[in-house]
């Protein structure tokens, strides 16, 4: 449906009036249309679907989500450490 892959913007340019760029997907660099992420700059990560960047990935939110996972269950560990097999 919407298999989107995160990639890092390496270059931004215009091609026939359309905002385009080179995006690196773990070593594979492809040309991607950046028309829908006007705020994204070189170094940013985006989700790319059928050659179009559909969103800029927000690092702060990503780190916050991961932190939430880390803290999951920490409260249980303190309240009743024995229930953890």
């Amino acid at each position: 449906m919407c298999l989107g892959v995160p990639g890092q913007i390496k270059e931004v340019y215009e091609l026939e009036g359309v905002r385009m760029g080179k995006v690196n997907f773990g070593g594979i660099v492809k040309e991607v249309c950046l028309e829908y992420v006007p705020e994204a700059v070189v170094g940013d990560y985006t989700i790319v679907h059928v050659g179009f960047a559909i969103t800029r990935l927000d690092e702060a939110s990503a780190l916050e989500t991961l932190k939430m996972f880390e803290e999951l269950g920490v409260l249980d560990e303190e309240l009743n450490p024995e229930h953890l097999e």
Binding site: C2, G4, V18, C33, H49, V50
Partner: peptide, 12 residues
């Protein structure tokens, strides 16, 4: 074809 994820690409 596709859902709302693909439509922007086709529209462009």
């Amino acid at each position: 074809i596709g859902f709302e994820t693909t439509a922007p690409a086709n529209a462009q």
